[in-house]
Amino acid sequence: MSNQKNNIPRATLKRLPLYYRLVNQLHEKGIDRVNSKTISEALDIDSASIRRDFSYFGELGKKGYGYNVESLLEFFKSKISERDTIKIGLVGVGNLGKALLSYNFSIHDEMLITEAFDVRDEVIGQQIGNVIVNDMQDLQKVLKKADLDVVILTTPGPAAQEAADQLVQSDVKGIMNFTPVRIDVPDDVSVHQIDLGIELQSLLFFMNNLRNNS
């Protein structure tokens, strides 16, 4: 099974959350089954790609029937985490960090920020949302007890690598990096880079391209 996971294309893995969100919505509406055509129209992904994506995980559906929504939902949940609630940490309680703590994935009950860390005295000890901010010096001690799945990094850029090093030393295996700095981590640590500046520039390029071709 581990070899199969390693052979799954990155593009497929990036689409899995989209499938999961749609299947969850269908389940909440009481819909029992769905086919690749319906998924394709809802997500604007061609049916062949959907069937190919699903094929990496074995027989998820049946020809002529489609996919059982409840079975798909349980499958995607198992691929995200073996636990019902995914515990998340946050390092860097600036404006973005505070916004994430206040929002705290409220539309995703299975994901919750449970720990936050900062180096500033004026922030340490504050309660933001339901989370009390810890001193960064206590990171390793807290993480040993917290059993987190992933940590969100929202520090200033110059502090990103040092914070990442501390997370690696605390055996964190997943980091979502909101800083503009590319961090270096061992091969067994997964990093997802979220650069808001790059995303905004990409949007502007797409807008200008559409305008020039219209």
Score class of each variant (00 low, 15 high):
I88P: 01
P180N: 05
N95G: 02
A116D: 09
K5H: 09
M207K: 14
R83V: 09
V150K: 06
I45Q: 06
S102D: 10
I88Q: 04
D32I: 11
V69H: 06
D53N: 01
I80K: 05
V34D: 03
N212E: 15
V133Y: 06
F105S: 06
Q137V: 05
F178R: 07
T38P: 01
L60E: 01
M176S: 08
S78C: 02
T155W: 10
A163G: 07
I198T: 10
S106C: 06
Y56K: 07
H27A: 14
T179F: 02
V150Y: 05
L13P: 01
P9Q: 05
S81L: 01
G92D: 08
A42Q: 14
D184E: 15
G61V: 06
V133H: 04
S2R: 13
M1T: 12
K37W: 00
V34Q: 04
K14Y: 12
P158C: 08
P158N: 12
M136K: 12
A159M: 12
L72R: 04
V34N: 01
F75W: 13
G129F: 11
D53W: 02
Y56I: 08
N24C: 11
K79G: 01
F75Y: 07
T38A: 11
N24P: 00
G125D: 09
N24G: 14
L210M: 07
Q127E: 14
L43R: 10
E199R: 11
T114V: 14
I80D: 00
E41A: 10
V185D: 02
R120Y: 13
T155Y: 11
Q140V: 08
A164K: 03
F57A: 04
N208M: 14
K63H: 04
R52H: 10
N7G: 08
G92F: 11
Y20G: 03
V91K: 06
Y67L: 02
G197Y: 07
L72G: 04
M136H: 12
G97P: 11
I132R: 15
T12M: 01
K77R: 15
L148S: 03
E199A: 13
S55L: 04
G66L: 02
S40P: 07
G129Q: 11
S49W: 06
I80P: 02
K37H: 07
G30R: 03
R51Q: 04
K5L: 08
I183A: 00
L26K: 06
A116M: 08
D195H: 11
